[in-house]
């Protein structure tokens, strides 16, 4: 599934990056070292962290996209870095649990 389809199916708003890339699998967490260890290439990363370190980790691990849950919004530095690194950031008012259930139902 690509980011564009994901956006449509989960009702997400994109705030940075392009929507052409493919995503598969998911990691949920807010601690950088754990994300660094566990994120896999192409994963959807659901977090509530909004600073640019999220983008740095997502880029290093080649995550498919980042979804900020619970209405979190990226700060300006994070947005600028996401544009530079080409990491899609999507935002949602839904909880990480709800988003994960929906991703599961879509077999992402």
């Amino acid at each position: 599934m690509n980011v564009s389809e994901l956006k449509e199916k989960l009702g997400l708003t994109q705030v940075a990056g392009t929507d052409a890339g493919e995503v598969s699998g998911c990691y949920i967490g807010d601690l950088m070292s754990l994300a660094m260890a566990r994120l896999e290439e192409g994963n959807v990363w659901i977090t509530i962290q909004t600073n640019l370190n999220v983008v740095a980790v997502a880029a290093l691990k080649e995550a498919g996209c980042v979804i900020l849950a619970d209405g979190a919004e990226p700060d300006a530095d994070a947005k600028a870095k996401a544009e530079a690194e080409g990491i899609p950031i999507l935002v949602s008012k839904k909880s990480a649990y709800t988003l994960a259930k929906e991703l599961g139902a879509l077999s992402v």
Binding site: D30, L31, M32, S33, L34, A35, M36, A37, T47, Q49, N51, N53, V54
Partner: peptide, 15 residues
Amino acid sequence: ELGFGAGMGLPNMKK
């Protein structure tokens, strides 16, 4: 608060 300090840094490096 920035998401650091999980205490996984050195263990991740070793691993």
